[in-house]
Write a protein that binds this DNA or RNA. Structure first.
Lengths: 131, 131
DNA sequence: AATAAAAACAGTAATCATTATCAACTTTAA
DNA sequence: TTAAAGTTGATAATGATTACTGTTTTTATT
C-alpha cells in the first residue's frame, strides 16, 4: 500500500461517510460537502472512496439504481433496501451469526465477507401508500 | 402488465439464462447467442432481461465490476462471488432459512426478498495461487 | 524559511454499462 | 388480408465511474 499524505478533503470525505446512516453514493457525499468545500471535485470523492475501499475502512453495501452505496460502519450488520425510495437502512439482527468461518468449511470456498440484504418496502413508503 | 407477443429471440434469451449456472451478465448472454442468431442486438438482450425482471422470472444476484449479474433460478439459495475472477457460484445452504416473513416482523419493514452473499476466493482461484 | 520530490487535486475527457429512440419488421386477432 | 400492437436492430443518449494532465499541497530535508 502506498504512503499517503495528509489531506483535509480526504478527511472530510471519510468523516461524511462515517457520520451518516444514509449509506451514501459518491455523488451524495460530494453534494453534501460541496457547499462547505466549494473547490471540491467529484473525481476526488470517487478517488478517495476507492482508497477507503482498498484500505478496508469502508464497505460496499449494494447497488441502487446503478449507484454504488457505501457504509462507513464496517461492523457486521445487515441492510434493508427499499424497492420504492431506494433508501438503505441498517438492520440490527443481533441473533444472526456473522461468524461464517465454518459455514462453507470443507467446500474449498474461502469466505472473506458475508452480506445479508433484505429488499422490500420501508416504513415510510409503506405509510405513504405511494404506488 | 402489458401483453406480450411470441418472440423467438425472447425465448432464446430466457433459455440461455436458465440453462447456465454462470449467473451471466447481459453481454455474456448476448455473446453466447450471437453466433446462432447473427442479427441479435445487445439492446434486445437488455430489453428482455428487464422484462423478465418485471415478471419475476429471473432475479438480480449482484453487481460484479460494474456489471449486473442475473439468475434464472429463482428458488431460494445463496451465492458466492469470487473477489479474484468475479465468477458467481450457487451455494447450497439448505440449513439456512429463507422464510424471512417473521424476521423483521413488528419493525415496519415489509420484506419482499432476502439475499445472502458470500465474498471471497473460489476453489479454482485458490488453487491457482494467482495474486 | 527555502526547496525539491511525492502525493493530491480540479477540471475535463474518456470509458463503459445501460436505456431511449425510431423506423422497419412480426405477431396477433379479427 | 389487414390493421393494430408488439418486437427488433441500429444507433444515439444517458449517467456512473475512471483516466488524464497540469497545478497545487504536503512532506522531508536543508
Amino acid at each position: 500500500m502506498a504512503k499517503h499524505n495528509f489531506s483535509s478533503k480526504r478527511n472530510a470525505i471519510y468523516d461524511m461517510v462515517c457520520s451518516t446512516d444514509t449509506h451514501p453514493s459518491a455523488r451524495w457525499v460530494y453534494e453534501k460537502l460541496k457547499p462547505d468545500i466549494p473547490d471540491l471535485s467529484l473525481g476526488t470523492v470517487y478517488r478517495n472512496i476507492a482508497l477507503f475501499k482498498d484500505e478496508g475502512k469502508i464497505r460496499v453495501v449494494c447497488n441502487v439504481n446503478g449507484e454504488e452505496r457505501i457504509d462507513g460502519d464496517i461492523t457486521p450488520h445487515s441492510h434493508f433496501i427499499c424497492n420504492k425510495c431506494g433508501n438503505v437502512y441498517d438492520i440490527c439482527d443481533k441473533q444472526i451469526t456473522f461468524d461464517f468461518s465454518s459455514e462453507l468449511s470443507g467446500t474449498g470456498y474461502i469466505v472473506e465477507s458475508k452480506f445479508i440484504l433484505y429488499y422490500g418496502i420501508c416504513p415510510e413508503c409503506s405509510e405513504k401508500k405511494i404506488h
